[in-house]
Amino acid sequence: MISLSAISKSYRQGNDNYQVLHNINLMIKSGEFVAIMGPSGSGKSTLINIIGFLDQNFDGNYAFNDVVVSELNRKQHAQLRNQSVGFVFQNFKLITNQSVGENVGLPLLYAGMKRRDIVARVNEVLAQVGLPDSYHKLPKNLSGGQQQRVAIARSIVTKPNFLVADEPTGALDSATSAEIIALFKDLNSHGTTVIMVTHDEQVARQTNRLIKILDGRIQSDEEVNHANT
C-alpha cells in the first residue's frame, strides 16, 4: 500500500541545508500495525508527516496504491489527505470552540457530505471509540484520554486506508495510554492499518512491527516478538 524509495528531506536553516531524512526505503502493507521509535530529533515526525500526506516537499519516490504522491498538485494532495489517511496528534489538535461532534465531522464536511448524513456517521464513530452521547460536549470539558478518543474518532470518520499517529499517548498517563493503545489495536484487528510514532517501549511492544530510526536513517526494522511479553 505504502512504498517509499530513496526518500530524503532537508530543512533550510539559515543558509545551510540541514538534512533530516537520508535515503529512506520502506514498504508498509495494508493491515499492518507499525511502531516507529527513535531518539528525539531523529526525524520520526518528519517521516510520518510525509507518509501521512501532510508534507509534500521531499525528494525520492512515494507511491501510495499506484498513486505517485510527489506528482500530485496541492489540491489532489489535500484530497488524498482527506480521503485516505487519518492523523492523530500528540496534543489532540481539536478545534476548541467547536463541539466534539463538529470536530469529528470536519473531515466529512470537507469531503462534501451533507450535514444530516454527517451527524449519523459521527455518532456512529463516537460510539465506536467509547464516547457515545458526547456530540454536543465541548473538547475542553473532556479529559485528555477522552480528547484523544475524539481525535481518533475524527481520524477514522472517513474510513481511511490507514491511520498515522504521532506519539498519541505522549500526553497521557500510563493507564489512559493503555486504553488508547487498546483502541488502536482493536481498530487494527478490524483491518485498519496503523502507523504510530512512540517513545514508549511498552506501547511499541503491542504492535506487530517495530522500525527504529537514528539520525534520519532506518536503523532496524523487525517483527515484534509477542512471546516475551
Binding site: K93, L94, L106, Y110
Partner: peptide, 10 residues
Amino acid sequence: GIRMAVGASQ
C-alpha cells in the same frame, strides 16, 4: 492547521 490536516484545500 487542523482544517488543512483533515483535508481542507487552500
